[in-house]
Every structure is written in structure tokens, then in C-alpha cells.
């Protein structure tokens, strides 16, 4: 007799497209370990170009997940980045969803492919 109990939603549904992108996940992870991080430091840590990093920062800033603070160091302009409260919560939720996903994949029967029908 088939089991008709409602199944819990697939953990992949909990993944947030804004956060799940790998570079953005890396950005949020670095920022979560600091109070503020310099643009150049983050760029070097993740091995990105200025333009690439800027593109991802703009998306995260628009989603209110990080704050961009522009200032000066001596006479040189300098950009610092800070994770917002929403950013911290979003990162935590994303990592939890990934862990659930891994757990589910690990416990899935080896020869029972899932079908849509």
C-alpha cells in the first residue's frame, strides 16, 4: 500500500537564488567572519576581478544583504563591506538548506532514481 503521508518539502526549495550563487555565498561567508572587510581583500580572497566582484556586490546590496561603506584611507578612496542582519540570517538559512540537501542525498537509496510521475 503506498504511503500517502505528506512528504516534507525538498530542501532544494529552501535555497535562495540570490544567496546560492557560489561567488555570493563566498562573499557572505567571508563577511560573516569580520565586522568589515575591504573590497580589495575580498577580491583577492575569492580570486575575482574588480568588475566581477562589483556585479555580485550590487546584487547583494540591492537585496539588503550587505552594506557598502565608502571612505578614504589617507587620500586614497577605500571601500569597506559589511554584512547586514538580513545577510547573516540568509547565509545561515542557506547553509542549513545545503546541509539538509547533503543529508538527504546521503540517505537516498542508491538504486532508486526519483521520478516526477
Amino acid at each position: 500500500m503506498p504511503d500517502r503521508r505528506p512528504r516534507p518539502p525538498h530542501p532544494a526549495l529552501a535555497l535562495d537564488d540570490t544567496v546560492h550563487q557560489r561567488v555570493r555565498l563566498g562573499i557572505l561567508t567571508v563577511l560573516s567572519e569580520t565586522r568589515e572587510c575591504k573590497f580589495g581583500t575580498l577580491r583577492d580572497e575569492l580570486g575575482l576581478t574588480d568588475g566581477n566582484l562589483n556585479r555580485h556586490l550590487r546584487i547583494l546590496e540591492q537585496a539588503d544583504l550587505l552594506q557598502v561603506i565608502k571612505g578614504y584611507e589617507g587620500r586614497r578612496p577605500c571601500t569597506w563591506l559589511r554584512l547586514t542582519r538580513q545577510g547573516r540570517t540568509a547565509l545561515r538559512a542557506e547553509v542549513a538548506a545545503l546541509e539538509q540537501l547533503v543529508e538527504r542525498l546521503r540517505n537516498a537509496p542508491a538504486e532508486e532514481p526519483e521520478t516526477d510521475t
Partner: peptide
């Protein structure tokens, strides 16, 4: 310094690899 290119790679990365790298 950057030591890993997982952040810039376009290849599909398994969730456990992503978690390990994070």
C-alpha cells in the same frame, strides 16, 4: 591570497563540496 578557484569556476559543484569549501 586566493588559493581556490571554486568561486570562479562555472562547473557544477556538488553541495557537499560547496559546504566543505565554505
Amino acid at each position: 591570497s586566493s588559493t581556490d578557484d571554486v568561486w570562479t569556476s562555472d562547473d557544477d559543484v556538488r553541495p557537499e563540496e560547496t559546504l566543505a569549501e565554505l
